[in-house]
Simulated scan of single mutants.
Amino acid sequence: MKSILPVVALLAVAACSPQPAADKKADAPVVAAPAATAPKPPKADVPAGAYTLDKSHATLVFRVSHLGFSNYTAAFADFDAKLNFDQNNAAASTLEATINPRSLTLPAPPEGFLAELVGPQWLNTATYPVITFKSTKVETTGPDTGKVTGDLTLHGVTKPVVLDVTYNGGYPGHPMDPHARIGFSAKGAFKRSDFGIAYGVPAPGTTMGVSDEVLVTIEAEFSGPPLAKAPAAAAAPKP
Rank of each mutant, 00 (worst) to 15 (best):
residue 99 I to N: 03
residue 149 T to W: 06
residue 52 T to L: 10
residue 56 S to N: 14
residue 147 K to S: 08
residue 148 V to Y: 01
residue 149 T to V: 14
residue 140 T to P: 04
residue 59 T to I: 00
residue 139 E to D: 14
residue 50 A to S: 11
residue 60 L to G: 07
residue 161 V to G: 03
residue 107 P to R: 12
residue 60 L to E: 04
residue 161 V to W: 01
residue 150 G to D: 05
residue 170 G to R: 08
residue 88 N to F: 04
residue 103 S to C: 11
residue 126 A to T: 15
residue 123 L to F: 15
residue 162 V to N: 05
residue 94 T to H: 01
residue 141 T to E: 10
residue 85 F to K: 04
residue 153 T to G: 03
residue 51 Y to Q: 09
residue 118 V to Q: 13
residue 151 D to E: 12
residue 57 H to G: 03
residue 108 A to L: 10
residue 147 K to I: 06
residue 120 P to A: 11
residue 86 D to N: 15
residue 91 A to Q: 14
residue 95 L to Q: 01
residue 58 A to D: 06
residue 123 L to S: 10
residue 125 T to K: 12
residue 148 V to I: 15
residue 48 A to T: 09
residue 154 L to D: 05
residue 181 R to I: 09
residue 87 Q to L: 03
residue 83 L to N: 05
residue 52 T to D: 12
residue 58 A to Q: 10
residue 62 F to I: 02
residue 80 D to I: 01
residue 168 N to K: 13
residue 96 E to Q: 13
residue 112 G to R: 07
residue 149 T to F: 08
residue 173 G to T: 04
residue 176 M to Y: 12
residue 69 F to K: 09
residue 106 L to R: 12
residue 82 K to I: 00
residue 177 D to Y: 11
residue 53 L to R: 10
residue 101 P to C: 12
residue 91 A to G: 13
residue 81 A to I: 04
residue 62 F to Y: 13
residue 115 A to E: 15
residue 89 N to E: 12
residue 138 V to L: 07
residue 67 L to F: 15
residue 97 A to G: 07
residue 176 M to A: 15
residue 141 T to D: 09
residue 72 Y to D: 05
residue 81 A to S: 14
residue 112 G to Y: 08
residue 155 H to K: 14
residue 120 P to Q: 07
residue 45 D to K: 14
residue 54 D to S: 00
residue 182 I to D: 01
residue 99 I to L: 05
residue 97 A to R: 01
residue 121 Q to E: 15
residue 165 V to S: 10
residue 170 G to P: 07
residue 148 V to S: 02
residue 137 K to N: 14
residue 146 G to T: 03
residue 173 G to Q: 05
residue 149 T to Q: 12
residue 81 A to W: 01
residue 91 A to H: 02
residue 167 Y to A: 00
residue 175 P to D: 08
residue 147 K to R: 14
residue 166 T to N: 11
residue 55 K to C: 03
residue 53 L to W: 04
residue 134 K to G: 01
residue 123 L to W: 06
residue 145 T to H: 09
residue 170 G to H: 06
residue 46 V to P: 03
residue 161 V to R: 01
residue 92 A to W: 01
residue 47 P to S: 13
residue 95 L to M: 10
residue 175 P to Y: 06
residue 157 V to Y: 04
residue 128 Y to Q: 09
residue 109 P to T: 12
residue 83 L to W: 05
residue 74 A to P: 11
residue 97 A to D: 01
residue 82 K to W: 00
residue 47 P to A: 11
residue 80 D to R: 04
residue 147 K to E: 14
residue 101 P to I: 11
residue 51 Y to H: 05
residue 91 A to S: 14
residue 140 T to M: 14
residue 47 P to Y: 01
residue 153 T to R: 04
residue 46 V to E: 03
residue 55 K to N: 11
residue 84 N to H: 00
residue 149 T to A: 11
residue 77 A to E: 15
residue 134 K to I: 02
residue 124 N to F: 06
residue 105 T to F: 02
residue 84 N to L: 03
residue 90 A to P: 03
residue 158 T to E: 08
residue 113 F to H: 12
residue 57 H to M: 06
residue 141 T to C: 10
residue 145 T to P: 08
residue 139 E to F: 01
residue 129 P to H: 08
residue 48 A to R: 06
residue 145 T to I: 03
residue 55 K to L: 02
residue 75 A to K: 15
residue 146 G to I: 07
residue 92 A to M: 03
residue 146 G to Q: 05
residue 137 K to R: 15
residue 66 H to K: 12
residue 98 T to G: 03
residue 112 G to K: 09
residue 51 Y to D: 02
residue 110 P to N: 11
